[in-house]
Structures are given as C-alpha cells and as structure tokens.
Design a protein around this nucleic acid. Structure first.
Lengths: 182, 182
DNA sequence: TCAGATCTAGAGCGAACGCTAAAGAAATGC
DNA sequence: GCATTTCTTTAGCGTTCGCTCTAGATCTGA
C-alpha cells in the first residue's frame, strides 16, 4: 500500500517531468533536473519510479491519451468534433501538446519503445476518424476515406508543429479550413 | 592550408554525422559514435572540428540547404516546381530529410541555436513560395497568399513526417492533391 | 631534401550521467 | 503503542560524456 505522501510526491515528479519534456525535449531531461524541479532527492525518485525511462514513458502515455480526451462512443463522433477536440488540445494544453509532437511523434522516428506506442495510437485515432467520416458521407468508399483521413491527420500535425514554432500561425483557422476541404 | 588526407577525413566525419543524426536523432549522436562510424580517433576529430556542436550544426545546415536545392532565379519558380523539388528531396534523400524534420524542425522547439536557423530558413522558403504563387495568380492578395503558403508548407512537413513514420503513406500523391487545393 | 605544417593514435581528465545502498524519519494498520 | 511498511536523505559507485594533450607519423612546398 502506498502512503499519502508518496502519492503526492509521485504526482509532483510526473508533473515536473512533463514540464521539462515540453521545455527541453526527450534528452534534455535528466534525473537531476526532474528531482530539482520536483524538490525531491534521487533516492525518493527511485522509490517511486523504476527508471528514467519509466517516468518518461508514463508522461508520453499521458500526452498521447490527452490527444483524444473523449472516450469513443461518448457522443464526440463527428469528424468536426474530433478535429475541434484536437484544436482544443493543442491550444489549451500546450505543454502536453509539445510533448506529444516533439517527443512522441518525432521521437517515434528514433526511439523504438516510443515508436511502437505512437504507431498504435495513430492507428486507433485513424480508425475513429474514418468511422466518423463514413457515418457522415456514405458516398465515400472505405479506401478513399482512409486516405482522406491519413492526409487530414498528417496535415493537422504539421499545422500544430508550425504553430508551436511560430505562435502567429493561425492554427485554428487553418485547421477548420482544412476540414472544409476534406 | 589543409592536407588532402584531412579533407577526406573531414568528409568522412561529416557524412557519418549525417547518417547517425538520421538514425538516432540529435542526442543519440556521440563523439565516440561518430568516430567509430568514420573510423577515426577523437584526436583526429578535434583536429578537424572544433566541437560536437559544430559538426552537428554543419550537418543541419546542409540538410536545410538541401530542402531547396535550386537557387532562387534558376528557373524553378513555379509553386508546382517548388513542391516537386520538396517531394524529390524527401523521397530521394531520406537521411537528410530525416535530419531536416527530426533535428531541424522539431529540434527548433527545444534548441535555441537550431531554432534561429530554422526560423530564418522558413522565412526565406515562405517568401519564395509566396512570390511564385503571386506570379501565377495575380487575383490573390498578399496576405491571402501568405496564409495559403503558410498552410501549404506546414501541411507538407506534416505529410513528410507521416511518411517517415509510416512508409505506406502516399506522400507524393497527397502532396500533389494538396497543391491542387491551394 | 628537408624544415615546417598537418594529421593521427592513444591515454586520460573532469564533469555529468543513471542509478544504488544504507540508515534514519515518518506514516500506517492492528 | 508498537511493529511494519513506506518515505526521504545522503554519499557515492561505475559508466559515459565531450574534450585535451602529447608524441610520433605523414604530407607538403620550396
């Protein structure tokens, strides 16, 4: 059984990890950095987490989960709503969005453990968008819908990336315009 | 004056750096890794490069330069040609494309030195695309052209990213379709 | 040919890395 | 109230990091 103090400390460590991941990226994060930010010593860290990899993967998992906050079948099932949810995620939860895009998406290109998670996440996300699209436009075939969603998701990620690099980029407007195109 | 041997060794080091950057990302690259891959010892490395940062920035600069291989005013001045050049860069020079997208673009979110270079590069690229678009479609205003190109470039990067993550993504086709939309 | 410059090998420095061990402090369940 | 578990502190281990230094090999231009 875990003590109340331990739960609180664990939360503080995880929160610091997310913030540092957003600021400094995957390899800019160190145990010392996390411990300083969370006001904890190394011994406490290793009492609550097994390794640096574990706390990072936990943070990445949370970022990935935050991309689609509404569980499937919760009423958020139209493409427009799904896109809106992504817009809100990126703009309202910038730290997690940064973790998602820099660590998860681009970390997926180099880190095998992250790559596995990202690809599965993308598959689920893709399937949900395709299902929503086909519900709305029965005239579209399965393959065509899959391709449209492929392009839509990739472009949305590109937009989000650009917005994080340059805040004057009108992410919301472009995303909605893209939706009308698809 | 530099010896012939030195020039060749320098090239070998730089080439190994680019390959390793593509495979392992910015922080997966170490002096030892570079030296092993280039079959060189640390002493030789530091005789030819000042630091790890220098060789990495050199590689990043080459990747950025390779994005737009044709100098301005070389006849490649229509939007379609510029997009084609980008498609060819991403698909033909995968290593450099990987460096460009993972190290330059997403490294720009965390590394200040890289961020500066990426933003300037993007500005130049953006201006060139806007000029090409306005030449073709005089009916479009300056602001509208700038916004269209903003979205086009961001989406293209998103497509390229997705293609590097999942090679079954039809990057070329999607890019051309996007061009027709814009 | 040969002095001077350049290149290479190899040992190793200080710092930072992830992580461990031991022992005292604090919380918890009975 | 007490035994047990959990939490925190502290010192420091072994490794790897970027990088330096020295001495000898090799190349170059006059």
């Amino acid at each position: 059984m875990r003590n109340r103090a331990g739960i609180e400390t664990r939360e503080r460590i995880l929160s610091a990890t997310k913030r540092l991941l957003a600021e400094r990226g995957l390899d800019g994060v160190t145990i010392k950095g996390i411990c300083d930010a969370a006001e904890v010593h190394a011994g406490s860290f290793y009492n609550l987490f097994e390794s640096k990899e574990q706390v990072v993967l936990t943070a990445v998992r949370e970022a990935i989960k935050a991309v689609d906050p509404h569980p499937s079948g919760s009423g958020v099932d139209r493409v427009e709503e799904l896109v809106d949810a992504y817009i809100r995620f990126v703009m309202d939860d910038q730290d997690l969005a940064r973790v998602y895009l820099t660590v998860a998406v681009s970390g997926g290109l180099t880190d095998p453990a992250i790559r596995t998670r990202v690809l599965r996440h993308h598959q689920d996300r893709h399937a949900r968008f395709v299902a929503a699209l086909r519900r709305e436009r029965v005239d579209i075939g399965d393959d065509e819908a899959a391709e449209l969603i492929d392009a839509l998701l990739a472009a949305l990620n590109g937009y989000a990336f650009q917005w994080l690099l340059d805040p004057t980029f009108d992410f919301e407007n472009h995303a909605r315009r893209l939706l009308r195109f698809a």
